[in-house]
């Protein structure tokens, strides 16, 4: 029995598909062949990657794209990001069929609203991933929905053909052909009881939120997949006040990763500044906030930080840890 309290689930990579030149899909099964937990559409798992010495080198969250009620395997899709922090490159270049990985139990920070009468799903590029599982769920429940999928060109459009074949309600927008989705037009005539979900770059999320606000949508009907990879920046020193330790945070690692590298185990979940689990009191220092969790007031006061994504503006920061 696997529960969400379990720290990690050992899995084996049983299949790798190159779905576009920059996106690979990995099929994961439990190492002992036992069923994986069912999940809800929009869930993600955190994949722990280890180097040749067995040291943890990356922990990245990826949306589950397989049918939520199928426990035989999970699938995740990874876009190769050459300018990123290295996790996606590791998945693309170092992980092969038969390899072992550790994943967290599924966590959902982007769930469908169960009372909604209609769902409008808006994706850009690799942002399609949470919707693949959600569309399975919606088809099964028989709730009306429509998908709007924006991408640059065919190479940047994972699963386009599969979606086109299966989803009569899908609309596609190829920006290289001058096609752009219009959030106002999409949202204008939606009936009462509709919820909208966006997964993509911040610009698209802002455009959809602005259109919804203009049309009078209650904020609770607008959902976005908020988590982002931790940004890179200048190195700095973290002082853990209670445990009396000083830890160097390199430019390419987050505070959370640096603490884990030093053998500490701070509470955390999404690793993307969305869930609030790793909220930490700041005793000294200025913070460069990158999360979607703390209020603007708290951020301005520099009294708290989300250690999974936010960094120090000063060379030294003292945390209540």
């Amino acid at each position: 029995m696997i529960t969400s309290q379990q720290p990690s689930i050992p899995v084996r990579v049983t299949g790798i598909d190159q779905v576009t030149p920059s996106v690979k899909t990995f099929t994961l099964e439990h190492t002992e062949g036992i069923p994986l937990p069912c999940f809800s559409g929009g869930s993600h798992v955190v994949v722990t990657m280890k180097d040749a010495q067995g040291q943890v080198c990356h922990r990245n969250p990826y949306s589950l794209t397989s049918p939520p009620d199928d426990g035989r395997c999970y699938r995740i899709s990874v876009r190769r990001d050459d300018a990123g922090r290295g996790g996606s490159l590791f998945m693309h270049e170092r992980v092969g069929e038969g390899d072992f990985l550790d994943i967290s139990a599924p966590v959902n920070l982007f769930p469908l609203n169960v009372l909604a009468r209609r769902h409008v799903l808006i994706a850009s590029g690799i942002g399609i991933t949470p919707f693949l599982a959600q569309m399975h769920e919606l088809r099964q429940r028989g709730v009306p929905y429509e998908l709007h999928y924006q991408f640059r060109d065919d190479d940047g459009a994972p699963y386009r053909d599969a979606i086109a074949a299966r989803e009569p309600t899908a609309s596609f927008y190829e920006s290289d052909q001058g096609e752009y989705l219009d959030p106002l037009a999409i949202l204008r005539d939606q009936p009462l009881g509709t919820h909208v979900y966006v997964c993509g770059p911040a610009g698209l999320i802002n455009d959809v939120s602005a259109a919804a606000t203009k049309l009078g949508w209650p904020p609770r009907h607008v959902h976005s997949e908020a988590f982002t990879a931790p940004p890179v920046g200048e190195p700095f020193t973290v002082v853990c006040h209670r445990s009396e330790r000083e830890i160097e945070v390199p430019g390419t690692a987050s505070v959370l990763e640096a603490l884990e590298g030093a053998g500490l185990e701070p509470a955390c979940s999404c690793r993307g500044g969305a869930c609030g689990e790793c909220e930490t009191r700041v005793l000294e220092g200025d913070i460069e906030h990158h999360d979607h969790f703390l209020s603007d007031d708290v951020k301005a006061a520099n009294s708290r930080m989300m250690i999974c994504v936010s960094r120090a503006r000063t060379s030294r920061v003292v945390l209540d840890l």
């Binding site: 204008r188 009936p191 009462l192 509709t194 919804a212 009078g216 949508w217 009907h221």
Partner: peptide, 10 residues
């Protein structure tokens, strides 16, 4: 009346 209304209703 509401069935013919949109998401901007309060």
């Amino acid at each position: 009346y509401l069935a013919d209304s949109g998401m901007g209703v309060r």
